[in-house]
Each structure stands twice: as C-alpha cells, then as structure tokens.
Design a protein around this nucleic acid. Structure first.
Lengths: 224, 224
DNA sequence: TGATATATCTCGAGT
DNA sequence: ACTCGAGGTATATCA
C-alpha cells in the first residue's frame, strides 16, 4: 500500500468523463492495483478512482511534473498530474482475513423459514425461494386454514418491496392450484409509505424483531 | 487527514454486527470525522467504517493497547483495538473543489429533447420535465400523427423505471386533452426484466447510443 | 458468463 | 429532517 499526499489534478475518461481541479489530496495505491483519490471529506468514498485490474504508469510531462496514467482493460483512463508531492510512503500489509458479518436479509429469511410459526400457529412452509417466471418468492407457506401465503422479506421495507410482492401475487393467483394467494410484507422496519401502499393492496405488514428471532433460533447468539 | 498504519482488530455494532480479526491495516481519519479501515485490496472500499457525523474517542484497554471508540448519534459503534502502531501521520488538506462530471442522465435528456426526431420523423416536443401530480415526466411529445407520447429516460433501464413510467401514463391518460398517451422507455442499456415488463404493459423500449447522439449534437465532441 | 438482488450501499437534490 | 433518485454504483449469488 502506497500513500501519497500531493497537490494534484485529475481527469477520468471511461463510463463518463470527469475532471478534478487542482487541490491537495491523498492518493491511495493498493496492492490489488487500485488507485483512489481522496479529499478530506465524503466519508470513505474517493473523489475519483480506478478499480482493479488496472495498471499504473508513472511518467513526467513537458513541465517536469509527475504524471500517473492508470488504465484498465476496457481502456478507461484515470490521469493524475502531481503538481507537488508532500509525502510518499509505502507499507507491506499482507493478505487480510476479511470481515465477518451477521444480520443480513438471507439470515432473516432463513430464520423465518425455520420459524414459520412467527406468522401464526400451525402454519406450514411450502418452500423458501419459491420459483416464478419473474423471480423467486422469498417464502411460500400455508396458514392454519391451508390458504396459500406469499411472504416478501426485506431488512428495510420500502415501496419497492411492496411493488415486488404485488407482482408475485398477481402471478401466483393465476395458478389454480395455489389461488387464492395473499401476501405478507415482513421487514425489520417498514416505511409509512410502504405500509400505506400495502394496506391499499390488501397486503399484511409484519415488523420483525431480528434479535428476538435470533434469540429463539439459538439462545447462545443472544447479545445480552 | 490522519493516516495510521496499525496491526489492529475491530468490532462494529450498528446496522449489523461485524468483526474484524487482527491484521495490519490502514486507518484513515478524515476531517469530516469519518473513520475507515482499509486492507490492501477490495479497491476503494474499506473493510469497516463509520460515516460522519461521528466522534472518535481514544483510550487504553487493560492490556495497555490503544482503543478507538467511534460513535455516531444513532448509537452505532466501531471499536478498534490498535495492537501495534507502525506509522501515524497527519496532513492538512483543506476544502476540495470537488468533481466535475459529464455524461449523466440529465445530459441524455437534454440531447434527446433537442433531437426528438431520434424517435421518428416529424415528432414534436411538447416539453421537457412535463409536470404531473406525482412528479415530472422526462419528455412529453407528439408523434407524426399527433398522438401524445410520454418518454422516460434512464442511463440504466431497470424495472423501477418501467414502474415509474407506468404511473405517469396512468395519470396522463386521465387527462382528456392528452389521452390516449403511450409510453417509450429509453435508456443506454435496458435489462431483460425491464424489457419484459415494459412489453407486458404496452410500453415501447428504445436503446440509446449516447456517443452517437452526442456526435450528432456536437461533432466536435466525437471521441474518434 | 450473464442476470438478479443486495448494500452498514453513498451521495446529492429537492421538499 | 426526510425522501427520492442516481451511481463510473460495487458485490455476491445463482442460472
């Protein structure tokens, strides 16, 4: 990893054209070949960058300034002019073991499929990722009266999710073996707009407590 | 901007829970308060981070190791244990003038409005950003037979764009002065899903060659 | 490889 | 403050 603090300007030509006026910034060159230009704001996002695989060529322009030309296979280019270099250090970091995550949509779906009685007593799972022509329904199940229920699961429930479930329901209700199929929209948090739209379409909303569900699934995973 | 090279481990508890085993990494602290943990790969994306506004508290644990506790208003926490610090430098960068872009959706819209005959000979523009109760329609025009056409423009055409156009068409067709109004979905790239949905709803799809269009609009801008 | 859904999306504009 | 849309989205999964 190479860290360069430099007063620079830059030009990107690729998926779009973009230009960066002269200012002092951090140039970050990683071992994977990526180059990114960071200002002192915008959180972790660089002003401009080139993703790997790409190659960095260092040269000088007619004014004697250092020129970095970063090119990828698609011919996209990031050209950086280093007007002045204030610092230039390199460090060997080695391979990183990476991040271990917990608490994403697939976990929610798994947990809810395993504990289908979250929705009501005596409910039964038909299958997870039930296939349809326009994509898989997260969970298809039957309620205690044997009626078919399609469940769409999101971490954050917004209007898109309701639209998606609506499309599935329309399709599923064309199948005489399944119909009538009703819908449940389940999420850790449901936006008011989404709730309104769902109600308007006769779709039930369910807010899920992920921690509680995880606690039921495996008490050893409780945080407290 | 503060750059620290350190052998560290970290824990994030917030929108999800995540853990980072011990390894040597770059810790990047920006003037906006953000903290990010970079490995020597994964392009510009950090392994873990905290977005501003947040506050960084530096302390020591019982083993005498440096502990960074980064907290935001929502109570999300990123806790970094610095087992060993290899380098620690700070630089004042000042405010950045930012990136100037070209080739985004608004340009496409401008170009297509100027060259409405891209859609057919003798078409006429009614107006760009035609206002409706649920938002502006990108382009409203009339075809060579005087029939009203609503055009939705995207750089990448996915299912959301078709939904959006569908809502506009429903609304516009309630206006006796305009109806019948048909729709065209125009994008540089149209996803198969979106194409299928559009066809199902009687919406025409049109793939646009941005460079060609720009070439027509201003030959001096041609790349070749 | 291509298509699809997710993301601690991020970021900016508009209300 | 919040919502909505766009992104050089990037990234992972699955066919």
């Amino acid at each position: 990893m190479r860290l360069v603090i430099s007063t620079c300007s830059a030009q990107y030509v690729g998926k779009l054209s973009a230009h960066l006026p002269e200012a002092t910034r951090l140039l970050l060159v990683k071992a994977d070949g990526s180059v990114s230009i960071h200002a002192d704001d915008r959180a972790y996002k660089p002003l401009n960058w080139m993703s790997p695989p790409c190659s960095l060529n260092e040269s000088k322009n007619e004014s004697g300034e250092v020129l970095w030309t970063v090119t990828n296979k698609a011919g996209e280019q990031l050209i950086i002019t280093l007007h002045e270099v204030h610092n230039d250090v390199s460090h060997e970091l080695g391979v990183d073991p990476g991040l271990i995550k917990d608490g994403v949509e697939s976990h929610l779906q798994e947990l809810l499929a395993q504990h289908i009685d979250t929705f009501g007593p005596d409910w039964t799972l038909v299958r997870r990722e039930f296939p349809t022509a326009i994509g898989p329904v997260d969970i298809l199940c039957r309620d205690n009266k044997g009626a078919t229920v399609a469940i769409e699961i999101k971490r954050r429930g917004d209007i898109d999710g309701v639209e998606q479930l609506t499309r599935y329901l329309e399709l599923l209700n064309r199948d005489p073996l399944l119909k009538p199929v009703r819908g449940i929209f389940a999420a850790q948090e449901i936006k008011p707009q989404a709730k309104t739209l769902a109600q308007d379409r006769g779709i039930e909303c369910l807010v899920i407590d992920y921690d509680a569900l995880r606690g039921i699934a495996d008490p050893s995973l409780r945080l407290f």
